[in-house]
Simulated assay, not measured.
Amino acid sequence: MDISIIIVTYNSERFIRACFDSLQAHVKGVTYEIIVIDNCSGDNTCELIRSYYPSVCLIENKENVGFGRANNQAAAVAQGEYLFLLNVDTRLLDDDIANALRYARDHSVAVLGPKTIGLAGTVLKTWDSRNSLVQYIGSILAGAFFVDRFITSDTSPSEPSQPLPVAFLVGSAMVIDRQAYQRLGLFDEQFFFTGEERDLCMRYFNAGLKLIYYPGWSIFHHVGSGDGQSRFHFVNWIKSSRQLARKHGGYWGALLMSAVIIIYTLTYWMAFLFKSVASPNDGKLRAWRSDIFRVLLWSIGLLNERTVLASAGTDLKASQKV
């Protein structure tokens, strides 16, 4: 079998039809299977899959085990020469998966990522030529002082037209060679949500394996569609960043990351504080300010995680930039 398409779902019923219909329409010229790991959804996700896509291998977890662990579950039973890890809030836009796999085989590619189109129809920046702990910490500091607003963008101003060797690929659509996975493993399950693909790319790149951005194959990604753009997302981004620093930077790396995280959270809280003072009748701004303040107190050890996440639900997107 050429490829195993792996999708992790969690309360994803609104995306199922678009994603799976695009697979049926555009996965051509290859042999494939679809494996879905559902992380204990409370909606009709599993019912939709069973009703409309009976050939899909559906594994239903009794609890939410996290994104990385769920993908590892699927990889353990996958039969394909390649694993295609795909977010459920995506859809394929063309039939070029066979060409992408052919390129991966011919050039001994360990990890390949397609071009990704966002909601505005722009090409999202889903790759980076650098991927080190120092570079990542620098990007967080740039976000803390809003420097990233002037020097970076979600879109790439110089979109490559040919396959490009890179050091990092976003995990929303990622093709991984089975031999690389068997040699180095897939995701580190200490990352519950976010950060796992950065760690994987670091491990693979540092081992001398080839990561390729492949612009000849396109998908659409409904970026920011998840339920986690809230305190839950922010807290787990912080936890993952700290875990990444411990793993790749030891004690001093973890200490530096903790300090940078506090600076980042403090500056965002101050930004929302000033905005809410300028617009005192804006309830959403006040809610954002309150959410970030809770996260700030947790980041310096003055609140526990359970208290921070209680009734979490506002759209806090501060962590999307880094």
Rank of each mutant, 00 (worst) to 15 (best):
R294H: 05
H248N: 10
N236G: 01
L266F: 11
V295D: 02
L266D: 12
V235D: 01
V235Q: 00
Y268F: 15
R286W: 12
L255T: 11
I263V: 15
I261D: 09
K284H: 15
L255V: 10
S241R: 04
F234K: 01
W288V: 07
T265V: 14
S241W: 09
L297Q: 09
S279L: 11
L244Q: 06
P280M: 05
F293G: 09
S276M: 06
S299R: 00
S240P: 02
G253D: 03
V277P: 03
G283D: 15
W237I: 04
I261K: 03
K247A: 06
K275S: 15
D291L: 01
R289I: 00
V260S: 12
G250C: 02
F232T: 08
W288Q: 15
H233D: 11
G283Q: 15
P280N: 09
N281D: 15
L297D: 05
A287E: 14
I261H: 06
G301H: 08
V295A: 09
A271V: 03
L285H: 11
V260G: 11
W298Q: 09
I238M: 10
G301F: 01
W298M: 10
Y264C: 10
Y268M: 13
K284N: 15
V235C: 04
L297R: 08
A259W: 06
P280Y: 02
I300C: 11
D282A: 06
P280R: 02
T267C: 10
R294C: 11
Y268R: 12
S290L: 02
L255G: 08
V260R: 09
G249M: 05
G283V: 07
R242T: 05
G253Y: 02
V277Q: 14
R242S: 08
G253A: 05
D291W: 02
P280C: 11
W237K: 05
F234Y: 12
A254S: 12
L255N: 09
S276N: 04
K284D: 15
G283F: 02
W269L: 06
F293W: 08
L266P: 01
F272L: 11
S290R: 09
Q243E: 14
F234G: 02
K247Q: 10
S279D: 15
Y251V: 14
W237F: 13
L266C: 12
I261G: 07
K284L: 09
D282Y: 05
K239F: 04
A278H: 04
S276H: 02
S299G: 04
L297A: 07
A287L: 10
K247T: 12
L285T: 06
S299Q: 03
A287T: 13
Y264H: 13
V235A: 03
M270F: 05
M270A: 13
L285A: 13
M270P: 00
L296C: 04
V235M: 01
N281I: 02
I238V: 15
A271G: 04
F293H: 12
A271R: 11
M257I: 03
N281T: 14
G249T: 07
L297F: 01
S258W: 08
K284V: 03
T267D: 06
K247E: 07
A278T: 05
S279W: 00
M257N: 06
K275Q: 15
N236V: 03
M257S: 10
L266K: 10
Y251K: 12
K247G: 03
S299L: 04
H233I: 07
I262G: 08
N236R: 04
A278W: 01
W298C: 06
T267H: 08
W288Y: 14
T267N: 13
L297W: 00
Y264L: 13
L244D: 08
S279I: 00
V295L: 05
